[in-house]
Deep mutational scan, measured.
Amino acid sequence: MDSLVVLVLCLSCLLLLSLWRQSSGRGKLPPGPTPLPVIGNILQIGIKDISKSLTNLSKVYGPVFTLYFGLKPIVVLHGYEAVKEALIDLGEEFSGRGIFPLAERANRGFGIVFSNGKKWKEIRRFSLMTLRNFGMGKRSIEDRVQEEARCLVEELRKTKASPCDPTFILGCAPCNVICSIIFHKRFDYKDQQFLNLMEKLNENIKILSSPWIQICNNFSPIIDYFPGTHNKLLKNVAFMKSYILEKVKEHQESMDMNNPQDFIDCFLMKMEKEKHNQPSEFTIESLENTAVDLFGAGTETTSTTLRYALLLLLKHPEVTAKVQEEIERVIGRNRSPCMQDRSHMPYTDAVVHEVQRYIDLLPTSLPHAVTCDIKFRNYLIPKGTTILISLTSVLHDNKEFPNPEMFDPHHFLDEGGNFKKSKYFMPFSAGKRICVGEALAGMELFLFLTSILQNFNLKSLVDPKNLDTTPVVNGFASVPPFYQLCFIPV
């Protein structure tokens, strides 16, 4: 009986604490739906499609509103004006990374994606500088992407125009580009180590996009005490870190300090320079996690976009025909596509942009946080508050993009057929937390897609009208449904 009384008292205290925290903070924060004790607004949000729920709530509470995930307040920004004001106009104040408990377990605050403060700034600055020195957006990395595009075309030829699921092959190409940047090595598509790495990356994007992960991140005790797919994700990350550590040891034994070959060499050189400046942010643990982040951000996002792009091109054969006509006119058949071609191919450029806009790969991006107490639109948001960005509300804005739910390359073309930029184009987020590999991803999408369409016609196994382009999961990332196609050599 005594234990029951204690339990009831504990629960009562928890409920009172929950109510007090919510009521004391709500006077400062933007308005929002009334949260339930302990669980907050979790029942009012469709976990399978958070973005749709945010759109519905914005119609009631406006472009800036507050939700509670458990006891934790989260300020939501919906629509271009609110997102721009926060991420661009007040970029420094909104540059923090929001709480992501599962990532905390995986990387302990290291790396480039989930770190904060001085650690994040130094690692991000170093990573950007190193990638630029190796030619991100310049010639040397373009050579690597072109080489991988040629290998991709050869792998597709091996399908002999038979029906195939493109998931694996389209994942190999961007993964190999990242391998060449980090390890100075590309792998054969049949290499077992490479296959294991690909498998872990593919599993992780599916797990991260599941409703279960949303629950884990908002009720963090689940991570330590409950079984579930989150444990598989943590094991996959541990596998990748151990693999990278092996490569780091190989580099330490063979590195030429006067001739760095890749990202690992550059990081080890930085560690050597910083060894007298303790404590340094440049450690082996930081290198492991930064490399894992580059793999995660640079492989599955690009391969998922490529997979979605081919599905949309199957669905819209008239678009595919126009792209192939432009390829034939500008590039021809006797040389590989290059980035200089893009400025002469406005329709193809528009298609690449429209694919990214339409699929809305990361509907709410990753959570941000404010780095200080900030007054925002007459609300006071306390330091450390998590900020949720609705990228969907920007990419699918119906004023900027008429009929935003329709796939239409003319969203990025003017009346004369010239490519038209849009400030609403934010597939990689915006501001200080914009994806480090934005330029690389854009290069890969253009070169891989043009190389495929230069060499193959795409054949659907069903009537294009019957192809479903609805994402199968739409949590962290929008993942396309399973499909097969035939690559018919031109």
Rank of each mutant, 00 (worst) to 15 (best):
S3M: 13
S3I: 14
L4M: 14
L4H: 09
V6L: 12
V8Y: 12
V8C: 15
C10L: 12
L11Y: 13
C13F: 13
L17V: 14
L17K: 12
L17S: 12
L17M: 14
W20M: 11
R21V: 13
R21M: 13
R21F: 12
S23N: 14
G25Y: 11
R26M: 11
R26S: 11
R26L: 12
P30I: 02
P31C: 06
G32V: 02
P33C: 01
P33T: 02
T34L: 11
T34C: 11
L36S: 07
V38F: 14
I39E: 03
N41V: 02
I42A: 13
I42G: 07
I45A: 06
I45L: 12
D49L: 03
S51T: 13
S51V: 08
K52D: 10
K52V: 10
L54C: 11
T55A: 14
N56Q: 15
G62A: 02
G62S: 03
G62C: 02
P63Y: 03
V64P: 02
V64C: 14
F65A: 02
F65L: 03
F65G: 01
T66L: 04
L67Y: 06
L67R: 02
F69Q: 05
I74C: 08
V76F: 06
L77R: 00
L77K: 00
H78L: 07
H78A: 12
K84R: 13
E85L: 09
L87Q: 07
L87G: 07
D89S: 10
L90E: 13
E92H: 11
E93L: 06
E93I: 07
F94R: 01
F94L: 11
G96A: 12
R97D: 00
I99P: 15
F100K: 08
P101C: 12
P101F: 07
A103I: 15
N107E: 09
R108M: 12
R108G: 15
F110V: 10
F110M: 13
G111V: 02
G111I: 01
I112S: 09
I112L: 15
I112R: 00
V113Y: 02
S115P: 10
G117M: 06
K119W: 04
W120S: 13
K121A: 10
K121C: 07
K121D: 06
K121H: 12
E122L: 08
R124H: 08
R124G: 03
F126N: 06
F126Q: 08
F126Y: 07
S127F: 06
S127Y: 07
L131C: 10
R132L: 05
N133V: 06
N133K: 09
F134G: 13
K138V: 11
K138F: 11
R139T: 12
R139S: 10
R139V: 11
S140H: 08
I141L: 14
E142M: 04
D143E: 15
R144V: 14
Q146G: 06
E148D: 00
A149D: 00
R150T: 08
R150P: 01
R150H: 10
C151I: 05
C151H: 15
L152S: 01
V153H: 01
E154I: 06
E155I: 04
R157V: 05
K158R: 11
K160E: 12
A161H: 04
S162H: 11
S162T: 12
C164H: 05
C164S: 04
C164E: 02
D165N: 05
P166A: 02
P166D: 00
F168G: 06
L170K: 00
G171T: 09
C172H: 03
A173T: 01
C179S: 04
I182A: 02
I182C: 03
I182F: 12
F183L: 06
F183P: 00
F183S: 03
F183W: 07
K185Y: 03
D188P: 06
D188F: 02
D188G: 06
Y189S: 01
Y189Q: 01
Y189P: 02
K190T: 11
D191F: 00
Q192V: 11
Q192I: 09
F194P: 01
N196V: 09
E199D: 10
N202A: 11
N202S: 14
E203S: 06
E203P: 00
N204Y: 02
N204S: 13
I205T: 06
K206L: 05
K206G: 08
I207L: 14
I207E: 05
L208E: 15
L208A: 15
I213E: 13
Q214D: 09
I215V: 15
I215C: 08
C216G: 14
C216D: 06
N217P: 12
S220H: 13
S220V: 13
D224M: 10
T229P: 15
N236S: 03
V237E: 07
A238P: 04
K241E: 05
K241H: 04
I244N: 02
V248G: 03
K249P: 05
E250T: 06
Q252I: 08
S254A: 13
M255V: 12
M255H: 10
N258P: 08
I264G: 02
C266K: 11
L268A: 04
L268K: 04
K270P: 04
M271S: 09
E272D: 10
K273A: 14
K273I: 08
K273P: 06
K273N: 11
T283M: 05
T283S: 09
E285T: 08
S286W: 09
S286H: 15
S286T: 10
L287I: 05
L287M: 05
L287G: 00
A291N: 01
A291S: 06
A291D: 01
D293G: 04
D293V: 05
L294M: 10
L294I: 09
L294S: 01
A297D: 00
G298V: 00
E300G: 07
E300H: 15
E300S: 11
E300L: 15
T304V: 11
L306A: 00
R307I: 02
Y308L: 02
A309F: 03
L312R: 01
H316T: 05
H316V: 04
E318T: 11
E318F: 06
Q324T: 07
Q324H: 09
Q324N: 07
E325L: 15
E325T: 12
E325M: 10
E326Y: 00
E326T: 00
E326R: 02
I327F: 01
I327K: 00
I327C: 06
E328H: 13
E328L: 14
V330H: 12
V330W: 11
V330D: 03
V330G: 05
N334E: 14
N334M: 12
R335G: 07
S336M: 14
S336W: 12
P337M: 04
C338M: 10
Q340N: 15
S343R: 14
S343M: 12
S343Y: 11
H344L: 12
Y347G: 01
Y347C: 02
Y347D: 00
Y347R: 02
T348M: 11
T348V: 10
T348F: 04
D349G: 08
A350L: 01
V351I: 03
V352F: 10
E354G: 01
E354S: 01
E354N: 01
E354C: 02
Q356L: 11
Y358D: 01
I359C: 09
L362V: 15
T364A: 08
S365M: 12
P367R: 14
P367S: 15
A369S: 15
V370R: 00
C372Q: 15
D373N: 08
I374R: 07
K375C: 03
F376A: 06
F376Q: 01
R377Y: 05
N378H: 07
K383A: 13
K383T: 06
T385H: 04
T386Y: 09
I387H: 01
I387L: 09
L388A: 07
L388H: 06
I389M: 14
I389C: 13
S390E: 06
T392L: 07
T392S: 14
L395Q: 11
K399H: 12
E400K: 09
F401A: 03
F401I: 05
N403P: 03
P404Q: 08
P404G: 14
M406K: 14
M406P: 04
F407S: 00
F407T: 00
F407A: 00
D408L: 04
H411V: 01
F412M: 04
D414S: 06
E415R: 10
K421D: 08
K421R: 14
S422V: 08
S422F: 04
K423V: 07
P427E: 02
P427W: 02
S429N: 06
A430M: 11
K432W: 05
K432M: 06
K432G: 08
R433D: 00
R433P: 00
I434N: 15
I434H: 15
V436Y: 06
G437R: 01
G437D: 00
E438Q: 15
L440Q: 01
L440A: 02
L440M: 06
A441V: 12
S451T: 11
I452C: 02
I452H: 00
N455F: 04
N455C: 09
L458T: 01
S460H: 02
L461S: 10
P464A: 07
P464K: 05
N466F: 13
L467A: 02
D468H: 06
D468T: 10
T469W: 04
T469A: 10
T469S: 07
T470G: 08
P471M: 07
P471L: 03
N474L: 05
G475H: 06
G475V: 06
F476Y: 06
F476D: 01
A477N: 08
A477C: 07
P480R: 02
Y483T: 01
C486V: 06
I488D: 14
I488E: 15
V490T: 13
